[in-house]
Computed example of a mutant assay.
Amino acid sequence: MTNPEHDDHIPADLTPENEHEVLDERARMFTLGFWKSLLAGREGLGDTFWAGNYLAALFFLPLMVLLFTIASFLPSLSFLLSTSFVALGVYFLFVARAVWLAKPKGDTGLGWRIVGVIWTLMNAGMSLAYAPFTGGA
C-alpha cells in the first residue's frame, strides 16, 4: 500500500478537491526535468518502469512513422531507421539502470525491481537485435 507521507509526488488527500495535484504531477511527466530525474533513478519504481518503457513510446512511435515514410521515398536515408532502433536500445539500457536505482513506493520489494529490470533489458535487446534488419537493402 502506498504511504503518501513518504512520497513527494502523491498528494496526501486523493479527493476530487485535490485532483489538480494529480493532474499537475502527470503533466510533470512531459518535462525535461522529469526525464532527467527518471533516468537518474530518482522517481518511484512504478513511474520509472512504466514511463521509461511506455510513455517514451509516445515520442518514439511518431518518430518511427516519420522515418519509415522518409525512407520509403528516399531509400538512401533508411540507415536512420537502424540508427533510431540502436538509440532506443541504448535508451532502454539507461532505463534498466534507472529501474534498478528507483525507490519502490509502498511494499514493493526486490522481486518487482528485478522483474522490471529484466523486462526493460528484454526491450533493449529487442531494439538492438531488430536494428540491423530495419536499414533496408
Rank of each mutant, 00 (worst) to 15 (best):
G136K: 08
D13T: 13
G111K: 02
A129I: 15
P4R: 04
G41A: 06
L63R: 06
G109C: 06
S37K: 03
K36P: 14
P11T: 07
T120C: 03
L67I: 09
R28A: 06
L110H: 14
S76D: 15
I70W: 04
M64E: 08
D8T: 08
D7L: 12
G111I: 07
L81H: 02
F60Q: 08
G109D: 08
A124G: 06
F79N: 00
V117T: 02
L63A: 15
R26F: 15
T108S: 14
H9R: 04
G116Q: 03
I70Y: 04
A56G: 10
L61W: 11
G125S: 10
E5A: 14
W119E: 02
K103R: 15
L88G: 04
I10K: 02
V22W: 03
K36F: 12
L39I: 12
L32A: 10
T83F: 09
A96M: 07
P104Q: 07
F79Q: 01
A98H: 09
T31V: 07
F92T: 01
P16F: 15
A137I: 13
L74K: 12
N18A: 15
L61I: 11
V86S: 06
S78A: 13
G136Q: 02
I114L: 08
M126D: 06
V99W: 01
P132N: 03
T48C: 04
L58Q: 01
V86E: 05
E21T: 13
S78T: 13
E25T: 13
R97S: 14
G109I: 12
L101P: 00
F94Q: 02
L67F: 07
T134V: 14
S84T: 10
L38C: 06
W50L: 12
S72F: 11
L63G: 09
H20L: 14
P16K: 04
G89W: 05
G46V: 12
A51D: 11
K105T: 13
N123D: 09
V95F: 00
L81R: 03
A40S: 11
V115M: 03
F68I: 12
I114G: 00
A40K: 11
M1S: 13
L58K: 01
F133L: 10
T69K: 12
P75Q: 06
A40C: 07
T31A: 02
W119N: 10
L38Y: 02
R26S: 11
T108W: 10
S72R: 13
G52Y: 01
D24M: 15
P11H: 07
